[in-house]
């Protein structure tokens, strides 16, 4: 797996994640040649920085500054008027204490955890199964694989509104279908029991193509000879998958899962369009809660919303760190 084929790295870099989480792989590939290259002379150093300076400035202005503003928001008591007047009293960690004590905090955290883990597990399992299936390269497999990408390319708002209508209690096709099997009406979007399941279904549907693409390119990069040799030694399809493909796919799987995690943690559009986090808090995740507190409310509490957002960032960073540590251990053994 170390010597990633050009095709795979290409496919993988082209494989975007919704929301722009770009693959981390290219930067790793580039590190090797850099080590053996001598340092640049002074003039060239300036030129190199000239080319990169706009992006560095951009990162500062459009990432670091909003992030700083967000932290600033979270330690003060902001209302809409204090945005304009500019004087919001310092509140320290009061806003954080406030959100941890809020009755919404526990359900939001649990819903986020359930949403993220169920989404990732099913997206990955289904995506991988489909990748293995398409890897058999039957007639039309290329075309069908391309068609599988459609859900991933649709604007999220479009997918979410389509699912809303499909899951409508009275007139949705899903309930009509279930009724044909004698199952009574399920209130997908309006009952606390089902709302989280409903948004999970939509989110899994959207995420399958991404997992399929990456796992398929991972499978493509495994040399065919290995499978052939195993066949000759009498390994069946099942064994070839669990004993050969699956272990060799570990690095690709790891990056897919990490990207899936980072993306799913910040999912907003789907849940907001389908349920607005409700009924009550039954499908409220941290991202939704943060929005409810700020823009979704008539009396916006930007400070608490910013605090919730920062908690979300901390969770993302912790998991990314765990991932990097795990990969180091994996590579050093």
């Amino acid at each position: 797996m170390k010597a990633m084929t050009a095709e795979q790295s290409r496919v993988r870099s082209a494989a975007r994640h919704r929301d722009g989480a770009a693959p981390a792989a290219p930067s790793r590939g580039r590190r090797q040649p850099r080590a053996r290259r001598p340092r640049l002379p002074r003039g060239a150093q300036w030129a190199a920085w000239g080319f990169i300076a706009p992006v560095v400035g951009y990162l500062g202005l459009f990432y670091a500054y909003p992030l700083y503003r967000n932290i600033d928001l979270s330690v003060r008591s902001y209302t809409v008027t204090s945005f304009v007047s500019g004087n919001a009293p310092f509140a320290g960690f009061g806003n954080y204490a406030g959100i941890f004590e809020s009755p919404t905090f526990a359900p939001a955290l649990l819903n986020t955890a359930a949403f993220v883990f169920v989404s990732i597990a099913l997206q990955f399992a289904i995506g991988l199964a489909l990748a293995v299936f398409f890897h058999r390269n039957f007639r039309l497999s290329g075309l069908l694989r391309a068609l599988f990408l459609v859900p991933w390319l649709l604007p999220l708002l479009v997918s979410a509104s389509t699912w809303s209508w499909m899951l409508n209690s009275d007139s949705g096709i899903v309930n009509a279908f279930l009724q044909a099997f004698g199952i009574g009406q399920v209130d997908w979007l309006t009952s606390p029991t089902w709302s989280l399941v409903a948004v999970l279904i939509a989110n899994i549907w959207i995420g399958i193509p991404f997992n399929l693409v990456i796992m398929y390119s991972g499978l493509q990069s495994i040399p065919v000879d290995i499978f052939e040799a195993a066949s000759i030694d009498g390994a069946g399809g099942w064994q070839r998958f669990w004993r050969i493909a699956f272990p060799l796919l570990r690095p690709v799987s790891a990056i897919t899962l990490l990207l899936g995690f980072v993306y799913t943690l910040k999912v907003f559009d789907i849940i907001w369009i389908m349920t607005k986090g409700g009924p009550a808090t039954s499908s409220t995740t941290l991202a939704i809660w943060s929005y409810q507190l700020s823009f979704g409310s008539l009396l916006p509490d930007f400070s608490s919303a910013a605090a919730v957002g920062n908690v979300l960032i901390v969770i993302a960073v912790i998991f990314a760190f765990i991932y990097v540590r795990a990969r180091h251990r994996l590579e050093s053994t």
């Binding site: 590190r31 850099r34 290259r37 190199a48 943690l265 907003f268 943060s290 823009f295 957002g309």
Partner: peptide
């Protein structure tokens, strides 16, 4: 061109993508 500190910039670009859009929206 590989400027000094280029690796740090790449890393920042990766980290930048972890920031939830809702946080960016509030900052903006």
């Amino acid at each position: 061109l590989r400027p000094r500190g280029g690796g740090a910039v790449s890393l920042l670009l990766l980290v930048a993508q972890m920031i939830p859009a809702i946080v960016m929206a509030m900052g903006f």
